[in-house]
Amino acid sequence: MDPARRLGRAQIDVFAQLGVSTILLGGIYALIAVGLTLIFGIMRVVNFAHGEFLMLGMYLGFWAFTLLSMDPWFVLFVSIPLFFGIGVLTYVLVMKGVIHASHNVQIFTTVGLSTALQNTALVLWSGDFHTVRPWHALRPIRMLGTAFNLSQVVAFVIALTLTVLLFAFMRFTHTGRVMRATAQDRDAAILMGIDTDRVYRITFALGIAAVGAAGVLVSPLYAVYPTAGLQFVLLSYVVVVLGGLGDMVGALIGSLIVAAVEVAGSYWFGTAWKEIFYFLLFIGVLVFRPAGLFGQRGAENLGV
């Protein structure tokens, strides 16, 4: 084969690989960010402990695999109800008391919760890095001249399915409608007989269930350690600001953009640079489009 054609072929492979990487990563980021934006959209609370719930999901994936040889995919059936319950409990014990407090009080509360969860994990499970290696983490998949492992592909499919289910829930069920109504006008919702405390409880629990599921899904892909959530939560804030605070569809698009920046930045400049690129993007958005790339959509379509 002549050298020029070989080069062209290699270029295509690179772009295919980067493109597919972006999509696979974006789907997982979407599931992480969608819980954050849901909680913000309905409750007007930024949950700074979001990454720690992801970390707990990763540990659940790790321990289930290590102690019970349970595949992370199956752990999801346990994790979703379990993290929903943890979300309810966290709401009742912690969030309920500050939901109508000032933003400062809410920030101190969720940052405090984040630190508490990190340190609990440190005390219980030490600071060691753990890995989860189920069979599918080692099973390569080749398509369009690109290579991925089966864990990545399935994690993407499941993450996207859960994200779409959450959209559908918000859009088409009575409870979803009640949640959106509460976000749009809380007093009017109360006058319709809506128990807004219950709405906030469900919202928080759904957000935590989503991020917990994401944690389980990424446990075969990333090292598990007490502050593992931080790397994800930083990019979730970028995603949520990009997409418009509280806008779930925006979060999906924002996830793809952040994933593209990460993938391209890592490829051309090295992995160490990826966070620099997020934050350049973040600062750029805050300066030029503070309401998100799609303008005020977030404020309008609260929680949708």
């Binding site: 006008d185 109360i190 006058l191 309008e300 949708v304």
Partner: peptide, 22 residues
């Protein structure tokens, strides 16, 4: 407040207060 609605006490508030994006 929300439980009073179930007892039949219902208000159309001043300014209508519809859910505008629905």
């Amino acid at each position: 407040a929300h439980a009073r609605v179930d007892l039949g006490v219902v208000q159309v508030p001043e300014g209508r207060r519809l859910f505008p994006f629905m």
